[in-house]
Amino acid sequence: MNKSIFLRELRGNAIALLAWTAIITFLTTATMSLYSIFLENNVKIMAMISILPEGALQFKGVSNVNDLFSVLGFYSANNVIYMLVLGSIYSIVLSSNILLKEEYGRTAEYLLSWPVTRGQVFFSKLAVVIINILVINLVITVAGYISLETCKKEDYNVDAFLIISLFTLLLHFFFAALGLFMSVLVKKPRPITTLSIALVMVLYFIYTISNITPDLSWAGYVSPYKFIDLDVVNPAYRIDPVNILYFTVFPFLLIFSSLRIYLRKDIYL
């Protein structure tokens, strides 16, 4: 760890963190503010939903249409796109750039000529990625909790809310690790932001397609989204150890491999 790099990255990424946190929090709370209107118009909404294909609900992780009328079901179904997709995009963009920008910006020629090991560079930057992801998740979770408490008409399963929040965090770590891994594989230095965003979208797309197409359900296992249980209204909702294992082992392997590669990487400028 190097204090100078750590503090610089923390400061340098503060505005983006603030912006992304504000956007996701706003979208989450704004959506939750519609919950009471949603309940008031339940007859019309049921009529509308009944004409939708079954897959359209599964697309949002809803297994039973009545789940949408519970506050947690509504939260999960409507905010998944913001927290799981936008948050993942933020995480992968942050991590895929944090090391690579020194190469395509040609600043690595200074940084790596100063007395700092590549390991220190790697861990200082990784620490900033982890802290930023923790902050954005903490704010989203608190905002989500306040929204749920404000909008609820009856009690909901707080444990289920905490579990889905935990998996959101783990998913963001997964994409951060993937972004870091992709960035150390880049030989000719150039930004990989577009590729990173596309990867999140493709993996989410694979997951949704596998959800609505029974023949392709196996393909969903390619995507980390498959390892997040969105059925929060289910009374048996609990932490699945397999999913925890998935979100522990893969990011660890990706980060470990990234470090190994970065320590021996030729820095072409």
């Binding site: 790596l112 030729d266 820095i267």
Partner: peptide
């Protein structure tokens, strides 16, 4: 760059 270990 080899002397500075930017390249191996």
């Amino acid at each position: 760059r080899v002397l500075l270990n930017l390249l191996f």
